[in-house]
Computed example of a mutant assay.
Amino acid sequence: MNQNDMDLFKQEMADVVPLKQCHNVPTTGGFTTSAAQRARNAAAQSSEYLQRLPLELARIPPVKPDDMLSFKREGVQDAVFKNLRLGKYKVAAELDVHGMNVRQARDSLISFILQQQQRGARCLLLIHGKGHSNKPFPALIKSCVNYWLTQLDEVLAFHSAKREQGGYGALYLLLPKNEQQRLENREINRRGGHLR
């Protein structure tokens, strides 16, 4: 800038008053989502899962009607998995998909798991049936469920149910804690939890 430009700039800025610095940032008291926003988020999340869980039967590894199903993600404690396998956890909700077609079963499964996780449910019962007479191959829905559940990060573990709750035609699902439950546990651990 030459001197004339600087003088012109100072003339233009002569009546400008600097803003007062305010260190108090107004808060709204927390972020809340509307029902419509939550519905849109759930729909987007559900759509993502629908794309990840195939309907093409060629991609589904078949299991037999009387096979025991069992799956555990890395990080799930052996004692927790044993309690799940033995049916020692209280079942918070159940879903029956046997008799549904593949698309209905997949859509119902995704919706059910997402809803239950949001509610804070940890152990679920899923009835898939054995499917001895399924077409195009036996245990069609059972095979799909077995594969799909391994593709969902929300499923920590599953195991075929005890005989009185469906045996090899049903399974127990273990879901992770939701964000609210994690926060509560952190607070309990921070305060010393059971020591008080």
Rank of each mutant, 00 (worst) to 15 (best):
Q118W: 00
E74H: 12
L124Q: 09
D66G: 14
L126T: 06
V76F: 06
I110K: 11
K90P: 02
H132N: 11
K82N: 11
V91Q: 06
L57Q: 10
S143Q: 08
L140F: 05
R73E: 05
N4T: 15
Q116G: 06
S160H: 02
V91G: 01
L69C: 07
H128N: 05
A93N: 14
R182Y: 04
T28M: 09
A92N: 06
F71E: 11
L126Q: 04
Q11C: 04
F81T: 00
P176R: 07
R59Y: 10
R122F: 02
Q21V: 04
M13G: 00
D67L: 07
L171T: 07
W148G: 06
Q115W: 01
L195Q: 10
V155R: 08
M1N: 01
F71T: 10
Q77G: 08
C144K: 14
K82M: 09
H128G: 04
K177E: 11
R106I: 08
F158M: 09
L95Y: 07
Q11V: 08
A121S: 15
P18T: 01
A39N: 14
L69F: 06
R182E: 08
R196L: 14
I60T: 03
K142L: 09
V17N: 13
N185W: 12
K64S: 05
Q51I: 13
Q151H: 03
L86P: 01
G120V: 11
G87E: 06
N146M: 01
L69T: 10
A58D: 15
R85D: 14
N24M: 13
H194F: 15
A139G: 09
G75N: 14
F158E: 06
G75L: 13
Q3H: 11
L69W: 03
R186C: 03
S70N: 05
K135T: 14
Q104S: 05
L114F: 02
L171F: 04
E74S: 15
G129S: 03
S47M: 11
N2D: 15
L95H: 05
R182L: 13
G129L: 05
V91I: 15
A139L: 07
G87P: 04
T27C: 06
Y89L: 09
G30I: 15
A161K: 01
Q181G: 01
R85A: 15
S70G: 09
D7T: 15
T32S: 14
G129K: 02
Q104C: 01
Q165L: 07
Q117T: 09
Q3I: 15
G120T: 13
L114T: 02
E12I: 10
L86R: 14
L152A: 12
Q180Y: 04
Q51F: 12
A92M: 02
E48Y: 05
I60K: 04
D15A: 01
K72P: 05
Q151F: 02
S160P: 02
